[in-house]
Amino acid sequence: MADLSMTQGVRQSQASKIALRWLLYSLLVLFALFYLMPLFVMITTSLKSLDEIRTGDLIALPREVTFDAWSTAWSSACTGIQCEGVRPYFWNSVLIAIPAVAISTLLGAMNGYVVAQWRFRGANIIFSLMLFGCFIPFQVVLLPMARTLGIMGIAGTIPGLIFVHVIYGLGFTTLFFRNFYVSIPAELTKAAKVDGAGFFRIFWSIFLPLSLPIIVVTVIWQFTQIWNDFLFGVSFSQAGTQPVTVALNNIVNSTTGVKEYNVDMAAAIIAALPTLFVYVVAGKYFIRGLTAGSVKG
C-alpha cells in the first residue's frame, strides 16, 4: 500500500515535471521568436519586390526572391542628392574604424600596462579621471569638439572622425587592459627588471604575448562601438565622409520619390553585417567586452 502510493506520487511529480519542461521550452522559443522576428522581417522584405510588399503579408516569405533591392541599396540608392547607394559610406566606415580601433587599442594597452604594473604616485587618480571620462554623455563635448576640429583643419574629414573615436575610446580600452594586467602578478615585472629588461622590453616580450584574449575583446568592443556610432558621424562629417549609419538614416528618411522599403531593409542589413559577423564569429569575446564594460572590474 505504502509502496503503491509512493510510486503514484513519484509518477505524478514526474508528469508535472515534464509539463513544466514543456512550458519552459515554449516560453524560451516564444522569446526567441520575438528577438528573431525583426531580423526575419528585414531579410524577407529585402528579398521581395515592392509590389509584393504592398500586396503581401509582413511576415510572409517572398513568393519570388529578388536581389534587386540589394544591388540598389549597395550602389544606387539615394542618400539625399547623391544616389550612389551605401557603398562609398560603407568604405568610409571601414576607413574610420580600422585606424581608430588599432590606435585606441594600442594606446589602451600601453596605458593599462602603466596603470596596472608601473604604479606611481597619482596613477590611481589619473586612472579614475580617465574612467569617469567614459561615462559622460557625448553631447557635452559636441560643440567644443566641432570648433576644435575646425581649428585643427580636420573638420568633416575621415581623420577628424578617427581622432574623435580614438579620444573617446581611450577610457574603455585603458580600463579593459588595466583590469587584465592587474591580475598578472607584479613579480613578473620584477623578475624581468632583475633580468635587465626595461619598460618597453617587458611590455613587448612578456605582456603583449599574454594579451591576445584581451586584445580580441577590446578590438571587438571598439569596432562595434565605432561601426555603430551615429552621433559623432552625423555631427562631424560632411557629404563625402559620412559613415554607413548616417547614410542608412539618410536613405530611410529621404523624402524624395517612392518609398522603397525593400531597399531600406537591404541597406540596413548591409550596415549591420560587419558587427553581426563579428558577433557570430566571436560572440564569446563580444559578451565578455559587454560585461567588462558595464561591471567594472
Binding site: 526567441a32 525583426p38 556610432d229 538614416n249 558587427t275
Partner: peptide, 20 residues
Amino acid sequence: IYLYPMALSMIVTGTAWKWI
C-alpha cells in the same frame, strides 16, 4: 539569439522597427 540585437547599430534597430 537573445543577445544578437546588442551587436546592431541603433540606427539599424530603428529602421527595422519603423518598418514593422
